[in-house]
Nucleic acid binder design. Structure first.
Length: 429
DNA sequence: TCTGGGGTCCTAGGACCC
DNA sequence: TCTGGGGTCCTAGGACCC
């Protein structure tokens, strides 16, 4: 049997901190943390900062004491710099192997050429460090999940492994799996970890040996895929071509919660401007728009409210003005006074390529704004005067119905919104 | 007082179609 | 006014990742 080609996962160590150090070598050897967009959370830590017990994702205000005590250097994030450094690392990797999947800003899966040795992996690691200043770890296995696991081992045992670990060449892979908690596996979060525990599985090795039927039942296809990958049966393809982008998101939290609709609208206008500029840059058009709104989820004692709603746009667009109109309408239907809002979000979805856009495929009568639809619904309810069965808007494509069983369609698939709602009470009678 | 932002995939259940 | 079955599409929300 021909052995399967091996997969490597190359992962930059403490990527954001390492990038900062390339441009400020005085940060070498010192505890450093990099903060999230709003300077709210710690999203990258140097080894020295990790050693102080500063957890990943921790709110900055919870770590102030340890930061002060040990003189931890705090930096705001600089994504332009990280994107640039990432491109340099990826281009070196791309030159070395037949295929590469850039998985995230600091990680890539590589398909290794036949006969690729651990020594070659070490040389690759040294090259990336020498050319970019970024330290990486490399894990090698027969599937993506195993490569991830090998990488985890390489990283946690840098002294022993030198930052490179090959599962395929190791004499006791099960020994490592036995030491790896199940939630240390790629794809196992809080929820799946609990499901595994309920099956009596707490380590990667127990997962590997678990009953496939039980895994399937409790964890669905996701769990089944992981189980196979763990046993060396590849289920996750290497994706060389980045898939088409499905949506572009813009959201921000407010430092302090605000209540007014006007402030919500201002934030939303900002998001529309950023997101539309982004899709214009990609040469994409949005055909759907979604608005999200929520209160502070960290304050459960305060009244909580979260809502989202999406609409098909009258036509594909990347025009800030057109998108703004739709976004403002949606916000007005979602907004409820009396809540302390923390977050506003915007999603431009169902993106289509501008070049491939054929207007005739999307040619449809302009839909009324959601505000207009809501007005229609209100009007219907007023006329019907049946508070036990109010008419509600059930779907974005415009299905109106009551609990009584009749409904009015305003267009399915190609929304036309042409049905005359005034006929409704008549139809009911 | 202060708690990120931007993604993807999957599923459940309603709605729709034949 | 009540009555069906099965396939598929759509949306909201959950879960996870970096």
């Amino acid at each position: 049997m021909v052995p399967l080609p091996k997969i490597a996962l190359v992962d930059c160590n403490n990527f954001f901190c390492s990038c900062e150090r390339v441009f400020d070598p005085a940060l070498m050897g010192k505890p450093v943390v990099v903060l999230s967009n709003n300077d709210g959370c710690i999203i990258s830590r140097s080894d020295e900062a990790k050693a102080l017990g500063i957890p990943m994702g921790a709110p900055l205000h919870e770590q102030e004491e340890v930061i002060r005590k040990h003189g931890v250097r705090i930096l705001s994030s600089n994504y332009t710099l990280y994107g640039d450094m990432s491109a340099r690392v990826m281009s070196i990797l791309r030159d070395e192997v037949p295929a590469i999947e850039v998985y995230s800003i600091d990680e890539a899966f590589l398909r290794l050429p036949k006969g690729f040795t651990e020594e070659q992996a070490r040389a690759l690691r040294a090259k990336v460090l020498q050319w970019t200043g970024i330290p990486v770890c490399i894990g090698i296995g027969s599937t993506k999940l195993l490569a991830k696991l090998a990488n985890r081992h390489a990283k946690r045992n840098k002294g022993l492994t030198g930052g490179v670990f090959d599962f395929e060449n190791y004499w006791d892979p099960d020994g490592i799996m036995a030491e790896t908690p199940a939630d240390g596996l790629w794809g196992v979060g809080k929820n799946l970890s609990l499901r595994l525990k309920a099956m009596g599985v707490s380590t990667a090795l127990q997962f590997k040996r678990a009953d496939p039927a039980a895994v399937r039942k409790s964890m669905g296809v996701v769990g089944e895929r992981m189980l196979r990958e763990l046993n060396g049966i590849p289920c996750l393809e290497l994706e060389e071509m980045p898939p088409d982008r499905k949506g572009v998101m813009a959201s921000r939290s407010f430092g302090s919660p605000v209540e007014s609709l006007a402030e919500r609208e201002e934030a939303l206008a900002n998001h529309v401007a950023r997101a539309s500029a982004k899709i214009r840059g990609f040469g994409l058009l949005a055909t759907r728009l979604e608005v999200l709104l929520r209160t502070n989820r960290f304050k459960p004692h305060e009244p909580q409210y979260r809502a989202s709603r999406s609409v098909l746009l009258p036509r594909p667009t990347h025009s800030t003005a057109e998108l703004m109109t739709a976004a403002r309408d949606l916000l007005r239907t979602l907004y409820r006074p009396g809540f302390r809002y923390k977050k506003t979000g915007l999603l431009l979805g169902d993106l289509v390529c501008e070049e491939e856009y054929q207007p005739e495929l999307f040619d449809r009568p302009a839909a009324p704004s959601v505000i207009a639809i809501d007005r229609i619904v209100d009007e219907i309810n007023r006329r019907l005067g049946d508070p036990r069965h109010p008419v509600v808007l059930r779907a974005a494509q415009g299905t109106l119905c009551t609990g009584k069983g009749w409904r009015m369609r305003t267009g399915h698939r190609s929304p036309s919104y042409t049905t005359d709602w005034k006929e409704l009470p008549v139809a009911r009678a």
